[in-house]
């Protein structure tokens, strides 16, 4: 396996949708290729970091009023469609 071939299936490796045969080929490549090993590990870490850190909290102080505003608008829409 070449680095280019590894890169082409990187997403499948990360999403763990590869066959056992392919998996051992990958393991062989990673053992001897430091570059691909770093890319693999740091891409995985990149995903993990973004998944674990909520960058935009749903603001507690507005969540209730937002929720109510949504439901009010839906209620109004429902009323409209029934009266027409």
């Amino acid at each position: 396996m070449t680095c280019k071939e590894f890169l082409a299936i990187l997403d499948d490796v990360i999403d763990e949708s590869i066959s056992p045969g392919m998996r051992s080929e990958i393991e062989v490549h990673l053992r001897k290729c430091g570059h691909c090993e770093v890319v693999f590990n740091t891409v995985r870490k990149t995903i993990e970091i973004y998944r674990c850190h909520e960058l935009y909290e749903f603001p507690a102080e507005v969540s209730e009023s937002l929720h109510n505003a949504i439901m009010d608008r839906c209620r109004a829409a429902k009323g409209d469609s029934q009266s027409s």
């Binding site: 890169l7 990360i14 890319v39 740091t42 891409v43 970091i49 973004y50």
Partner: peptide, 16 residues
């Protein structure tokens, strides 16, 4: 997705 992951990784490498 592949390119997004690679680009993010590359950019974060500077910090991490």
């Amino acid at each position: 997705l592949l390119r997004a992951r690679l680009q993010l990784r590359e950019r974060l490498t500077r910090f991490f």
